[in-house]
């Protein structure tokens, strides 16, 4: 082999090794580290084990927000057909309101309560999280949520 060919071969080998390593990492990571999104109706039909992290979205049910003595909050997320109680300790986003769209990240705990580690609301008045729009459309309650 000429030096030129050797260099090309080294380059190709390096790329193949890096590519294979990267692909292995990516596939492994994608298998275990994606978060699924469920609407309350999805949750009612699927069995999701306690402690498995996922995201849930819908509207904050009217009159359901209860603030505890410490910085904890409880509320109900609904898509019109099913609903899920949510517990959260932290500061709610500025645009968190009853009757408006919300996405929460967390896992189910005992008693079917969703323990949220993060709560996201919309960024501005014109915007609704697309997952929530989708969930509401599927449960046939989209227009009510649109306001």
């Amino acid at each position: 082999m000429t030096p030129k060919q050797r260099r090309r071969l080294a380059f190709a080998l390096a790329l193949v090794v890096a590519g294979a390593g990267g692909a292995a990492l990516v596939l492994g990571a994608l298998k275990d580290n994606v978060l699924y999104f469920y609407s309350p109706s999805d949750l009612a039909t699927k069995h999701v084990a306690d402690g498995v992290a996922f995201r849930i979205g819908g509207l904050v049910a009217k009159g359901s927000v209860v603030r505890g003595p410490a910085a904890d909050v409880r509320f109900v997320v609904t898509d019109g057909r099913a609903s899920v109680p949510v517990e959260f300790r932290g500061v709610l986003p500025d645009l968190f309101r009853e009757g408006q769209g919300v996405v929460a990240l967390g896992a189910l705990g005992p008693g079917g309560v969703f323990n949220a580690t993060e709560v996201l609301a919309k960024h501005d008045e014109r915007y609704m999280p697309p997952e929530v729009v989708d969930a509401l459309k599927r449960s046939g309650r989209w227009k009510e949520g649109e306001q």
Partner: peptide, 18 residues
């Protein structure tokens, strides 16, 4: 039509070692 999101754990495993 499945909605998922890929968060920090994925990047910690893939991006960080490289």
């Amino acid at each position: 039509g499945t909605r998922i999101s890929v968060g920090p754990p994925y990047f910690a495993i893939t991006f960080a070692p490289i």
